[in-house]
């Protein structure tokens, strides 16, 4: 067993270094889908968190409660709900999104939106509430004051996006149920790994696993550099 693991690891290494076409197409699709999902979730989640921290409105506590509950949402549940919506006979069926990279992106966005929103909410809450007031008293307009608050919370925000990216790229349920694991079209790293494992082909599976680890490692390094640069 140990010998098999070592052999697979070495083969996986050469697969990565050798630029295996199939492997890299899967990797790029995964990176692209999760990147777009992160952008979408950040563009929605950050303003939502800002609204929750700075405004009082009916149902605010309920929104926070729901978002907190959604943090533990299983990926298959997201996949199932969205499947019902975008399947051919669903409300959004005419858009013909099922089994496409768009569906994977959408699913991952729904999955990581609560994470980005709640981590941003925590970041804004921890930020000195007088920060905005200081900006205002120094002559900032409301828009400039909001920008200042975002700037002050930027490190925590990048941390939130990195955490969300990690959750998005490592999930299987959404990609499998909404993407369908179609070779060369919707096959992502995790669905490919699951498939290769089922087939007993550990080499590609391990190679993809290594790339996943590498992505996580790079993300953490980037975060560390960002922290060092911006948090004097």
């Amino acid at each position: 067993m140990g010998q098999m693991f070592t052999d697979s690891l070495v083969s996986a290494f050469f697969l990565i270094v050798g630029g295996d076409r199939e492997l890299w197409s899967v990797v790029f699709l995964s990176l692209r889908c999760t990147f777009l999902a992160c952008c979408g979730a950040a563009l929605t989640g950050v303003p939502l968190a800002f609204l929750l921290v700075n405004h009082v409105f009916p149902g605010k506590r309920l929104v926070i409660l729901v978002l907190n509950s959604l943090l533990a949402l299983p990926t298959v549940v997201v996949g199932l709900f969205l499947y019902v919506l975008i399947a051919r006979r669903g409300i959004f069926g005419p858009l013909d999104m099922l089994y496409s990279p768009t569906a994977i992106t959408l699913g991952q966005m729904v999955l990581i939106l609560p994470l980005i929103a709640m981590l941003s909410y925590t970041a804004f809450s921890r930020l000195d509430s007088r920060c905005r007031e200081t900006a205002l008293t120094l002559g900032a307009s409301a828009w400039q004051a909001n920008k200042t608050v975002l700037r002050e919370a930027r490190f925590a925000m990048v941390g939130a996006v990195c955490a969300a990216y990690g959750r998005g790229i490592a999930e299987v349920g959404v990609s499998m149920m909404l993407g369908g694991n179609i070779q060369g079209y919707t096959r992502t790293m995790t669905t490919a790994m699951a498939l290769e494992y089922d087939k007993g082909a550990f080499t590609l599976s391990l190679g993809l696993g290594l790339v996943l680890l590498l992505v996580s490692f790079v993300l953490n390094i980037a975060l560390g550099c960002f922290q060092g640069k911006l948090d004097p």
């Binding site: 000195d128 920060c131 007031e133 200081t134 205002l136 008293t137 002559g139 700037r151 911006l230």
Partner: peptide
């Protein structure tokens, strides 16, 4: 916002930006 121009409030523990 208009009146605030030129009127500055310094709190007990001034907030310094990063």
């Amino acid at each position: 916002a208009l009146h605030r121009q030129g009127v500055v409030f310094v709190p007990q523990f001034p907030v310094m930006f990063t």
